[in-house]
Design a protein around this nucleic acid. Structure first.
Lengths: 151, 151
DNA sequence: AGTGATAATTAGAATTATTCTAAATGATGA
DNA sequence: TCATCATTTAGAATAATTCTAATTATCACT
């Protein structure tokens, strides 16, 4: 046979290729883990989850792959104070709400014009490439993330 | 004598007392350092500056005092990604602009209603105690902080 | 002024998250 | 198949911060 029916490159493979990078089993399983449970896991948490699928993966690879996904704009790295970096596959414009009681992080979708409106406070001479909005406080249990939608 | 003319407690001493804490030479000199050069120094930088006044101070004390000042709401701790925590004595509502070239941090004063407007995007069930807005990008040299006003 | 209780400071060890290094493995294309 | 380059890996190294336990300073009372 000349070519065994080419699998259509998925979004991940395409994005990676666009940056001259390869799709690898490690990158795929890590990205899947992030999509499956969108609770802003740390690298350690991702490591733990990935290991059930791929017990031989190393923590260094988890760090490497997460960094790669961030570079490709498939994932956002999120920080609260000096806590460990958390990873978020939600690409829509959104803010983060950090619940101080539970430690959980909630995505807050933003109306389309808000980031522009906020950026408008910058005096001349400032050119912002990104804006981050972070809330800290108390969230009612009813707000606990259920089935996050993306896409 | 019954009482040697009491020195009027300054803002620092009052704030500390309000939290049941004492004013100490270390706390004073650290707060002064922050007020004198408002370039969002790290704990290490504060340590270096304070040592010219008080060569015997320890780094642990610098961390302790900075934390104390933050607890008393005299100073804000500011973080960018996972970089070292920076300290800012500007108590007005403001955002931070992080210049990627120079690594410098600029305070961006916010119009009085902006934080409320931003908080208005929170769905019911979310009660935010604080809102943080951070810009990242390029700032023209003309925007380099000169003499920051506070008060 | 002396004394006990509490607060603050200190040096150095410990911790935590992350990055680095150098070697091994894997994929790609001539 | 071979050479090349990308990727993964284990473990060492790093950086910022926190912790620990001991010392020093201050306060409230007498």
């Amino acid at each position: 046979m000349t070519r065994p029916s080419v699998t259509t490159p998925d979004a991940l493979a395409q994005r990676l290729a666009h940056s001259g990078l390869r799709s690898t089993p490690q990158r795929e399983v890590i990205y899947d883990v992030l999509l499956k449970k969108r609770d802003h896991p740390t690298a350690d948490e991702v490591y733990a989850r990935v290991r059930s699928d791929m017990p031989s993966i190393s923590l260094a690879t988890v760090y490497n792959c997460l960094e790669t996904l961030v570079q490709c704009d498939l994932v956002r790295a999120v920080n609260f104070e000096r806590g460990p970096t958390r990873y978020c596959p939600n690409l829509r414009p959104h803010a983060h709400f950090h619940d101080e009681q539970s430690g959980s992080t909630h995505d807050i979708d933003l109306p389309p014009d808000l980031l522009e409106k906020v950026s408008a406070v910058l005096p001349p001479g400032y050119d912002a490439k990104s804006v981050e909005i972070t809330f800290r406080g108390k969230a009612l249990p009813s707000t606990e993330p259920k089935a996050a939608a993306n896409k």
